[in-house]
């Protein structure tokens, strides 16, 4: 009896968004009296970090610090329309809409600043710290809070902007099947190192090495967390999770998502994650979606690593000790027909 080591590899191409019957998201942005910019959305942050990334997109476009951006979202009664948080679309769709809205608001901000400074708006630029400065004469400047006050109480201007990103509906060409279903595709691969106990059938994932090409990682810390948390979920799909019973009676299996087994902190592998940044033309500052794809490649990589370790070709998730042992038994008995563990 032995602990058998193996290495497996798998890749994924993953679409950012889908075209549905047309897939839009909208954003509205306006300045408060004190020069903070409220971004109104109905897009939902379920913990993936959308509000953080949208704050970055708005601040970058306005040329202001992130502290000047307030995200007001997830009330579909009052926010402008968003199709939702799915299909790895949030950063791409909402980011593009927010950039469009922020560009319009920035133009008004510069126009009001120009009137206050008695210069041409085209000669002004925000410096990223809260001031708007005359290009080439940096001592001539005005703070965004003064611009906002002047707009509200002196000049009767709304510093605001509207944005929408629409992925138009795309029907397949009947003759060829050709269509344009997504906005761009992200690419990734994972290499898994596993250890298989040929006595118990238990599989342990030792290491996961992830490489992701996701356009631009707008927030590298969140992107890394998404890759490694997603890889953990993939490992969980591969080895642990099922709501289907292992035994004939359904009573013996977990009946809901609160009861099934998932890997805990003692089950985690060492992970290494690398990004290749090739900005996407359609993405906000080049970003592609990264949400769903991260759970995909670890599953096939682990299956391939199990094959490399012990010769068992598992094809039904999760790769439980029982399924691995059945595969090993089949190999040992030389029963090639029963080698698949799918039965």
């Amino acid at each position: 009896m032995a602990m058998l080591r193996g290495r497996g590899y798998a890749s994924v191409n993953y679409p950012t968004g889908m075209n549905l019957g047309g897939d839009p998201s909208q954003a509205l942005i306006h300045s408060t009296t004190m020069g903070n910019f409220v971004v109104s959305l109905s897009s939902v942050d379920v913990g993936q970090g959308l509000k953080t990334v949208i704050t970055q997109c708005a601040a970058e476009t306005l040329g202001l610090p992130c502290e000047n951006v307030i995200i007001d979202t997830a009330d579909t009664d009052t926010g402008p329309h968003c199709m939702g948080t799915f299909a790895s679309r949030g950063t791409h769709r909402v980011g593009n809409a927010v950039i469009m809205a922020a560009e319009e608001a920035r133009q008004v901000m510069l126009e009001v600043a120009a009137e206050e400074l008695e210069v041409d708006a085209a000669d002004l630029e925000p410096d990223g710290t809260g001031y708007i400065r005359l290009k080439g004469a940096v001592e001539k400047k005005i703070h965004v809070s003064e611009v906002a006050l002047a707009a509200h109480f002196k000049r009767g201007r709304t510093i605001s902007g509207r944005g929408i990103f629409l992925k138009e509906k795309s029907d397949p060409v009947p003759e060829t099947g050709e269509m344009d279903p997504d906005s761009c595709q992200a690419h990734a691969c994972t290499v898994a190192d596993v250890e298989v106990d040929d006595e118990t059938g238990e599989v342990r994932v030792l290491e996961l090495h992830n490489v992701y090409e996701i356009g631009r990682a707008l927030n590298p810390a969140i992107a890394t967390q998404q890759v490694e948390g997603g890889a953990w979920m993939g490992m969980s799909h591969a080895l642990f999770e099922t709501t289907e019973p292992y035994y004939p009676l359904r009573d013996h299996g977990p009946a809901s998502f609160t009861e099934y087994l998932i890997p805990g902190p003692a089950d985690i592998p060492v992970q290494e994650s690398v990004f290749l940044e090739r900005p996407a033309a359609s993405g906000p500052y080049g970003a592609k979606g990264i949400g769903e794809m991260t759970a995909n490649p670890p599953i096939a990589a682990i299956a391939n690593a199990i094959f490399d370790a012990c010769g068992v070709r598992v094809d039904t998730m999760p790769f439980t000790p029982e399924r691995v042992l059945r595969g090993l038994d089949a190999l040992r008995s030389g029963d090639r027909a029963a080698e698949s563990t799918s039965s």
Binding site: G229, W232, G264
Partner: peptide, 22 residues
């Protein structure tokens, strides 16, 4: 690390994969 893993073994995290927490 084993003692840390045991201490938080009753706490689920679905985002991080646990490594940053440990």
């Amino acid at each position: 690390e084993d003692e840390v893993a045991e201490a938080i073994s009753g706490n689920h995290c679905r985002c991080t994969g646990y490594r940053p927490i440990m």
